[in-house]
C-alpha cells in the first residue's frame, strides 16, 4: 500500500538512532503539540513502538516493527508498513491496527475491541484469549489460532494449522483455506447468510482479496464450559 501523503499536521520521526523510550516520548510530544498524524521512519523492528496510544491518533510505521507494536491501544489507528513481532495490538481496548506484512506469535492477544488486520501470514496463537473485536488475516495462521478465545471474531483467508479454535469459551473463527486438526471442543457450524454478510463486509472494508474457497465457521462446542463426568475423555485432552 502506498504511504499516505505527508500533510502539515503530520509529525515525522526518524527512528534510526533512537532508543524506544525516546521515540515514544516524541510521539507523546507530537500528540501534545496537536499533531494527530505521526509517521515513524526506519523503525528497524524495534519493540514497543506506539503503545497505549490515545483515541484520535493516526500512527504510520514505515517498516517492520517488533514486539507489542500498538499494544494496549486505547483507540488509535496504527498502520505498519511491514511485518510485526510478538503480541501486536495485545490487550487493545479499541482502535484499528493494520499490518501489511506478517505477524509473529499472539497477534491481537486478549484484545477487547477494535480491529486488527494482518495482510500477510500470522504465526502461532493468533487471536489468543480475544475478549472481543475482530482479527482478519489475509494469509495463513500457525497452530492454536483462537486459543481460549472469549468473544469476537477471527477471519482467516488462508490455512489454519493444527489446534485452531482450541478450548474457546465463545467467539467465532472463520477459515477459508485448509483446516488443520481442530482444537479441543471446536465444532464446525453452518456458515449462514448472516455470516457471509459479516465476513465479506469486513474483507471489503479492509480491502482484503476474497479467497477463492468459501469459509468454514468454527465455534465452541461448549462442552468445556462446565465439567461433566460423561465428557471425561474430552477433558483429559483439555485439562
Amino acid at each position: 500500500m502506498p504511504l499516505p501523503a505527508t500533510s502539515e499536521r503530520t509529525s515525522t520521526i526518524d527512528c534510526s538512532d533512537m532508543p524506544v523510550r525516546a521515540i515514544n516520548r516524541e510521539i507523546r510530544a507530537a500528540l501534545a503539540g496537536n499533531s494527530t498524524k505521526i509517521m515513524l521512519l526506519h523503525p528497524g523492528a524495534r519493540h514497543n513502538l506506539g503503545v497505549a496510544l490515545p483515541e484520535g491518533t493516526e500512527l504510520t510505521i514505515d517498516g517492520p516493527a517488533g514486539y507489542y507494536v500498538a499494544g494496549l491501544n486505547d483507540g488509535a489507528t496504527v498502520h505498519v508498513h511491514g511485518g510485526v513481532g510478538w503480541g501486536a495490538a495485545e490487550s487493545m481496548r479499541d482502535g484499528v491496527v493494520t499490518i501489511d506484512g506478517d505477524a509473529g506469535n499472539a497477534v491481537a492477544a486478549a484484545i477487547r475491541d477494535g480491529v486488527v488486520v494482518v495482510r500477510g501470514d500470522a504465526s502461532t496463537r493468533a487471536g489468543i484469549a480475544m475478549k472481543g473485536g475482530v482479527l482478519i488475516v489475509g494469509g495463513s495462521v500457525g497452530p492454536m489460532a483462537g486459543f481460549m478465545m472469549q468473544k469476537g471474531i477471527i477471519i482467516i483467508c488462508g490455512d489454519a494449522a493444527d489446534g485452531v479454535a482450541d478450548s474457546m469459551y465463545a467467539g467465532t473463527v472463520y477459515v477459508a483455506g485448509k483446516l488443520g486438526e481442530l482444537g479441543a471442543d471446536a465444532v464446525v457450524e453452518e456458515f449462514t447468510g448472516g455470516d457471509r454478510d459479516l465476513v465479506y463486509s469486513h474483507l471489503e472494508r479492509w480491502k482484503i482479496p476474497a479467497p477463492a474457497a468459501g469459509f468454514r465457521k468454527l465455534v465452541a462446542g461448549r462442552k468445556l464450559w462446565n465439567f461433566q463426568k460423561a465428557d471425561r475423555h474430552l477433558w483429559k485432552s483439555a485439562l
Binding site: 523492528a45 524495534r46 517498516g63 517488533g66 514486539y67 511485518g83 509473529g104
Partner: peptide, 8 residues
C-alpha cells in the same frame, strides 16, 4: 531470536 537483529 528477534527480527530486530536481522534488520540491524
Amino acid at each position: 531470536t528477534e527480527e530486530i537483529a536481522l534488520r540491524r
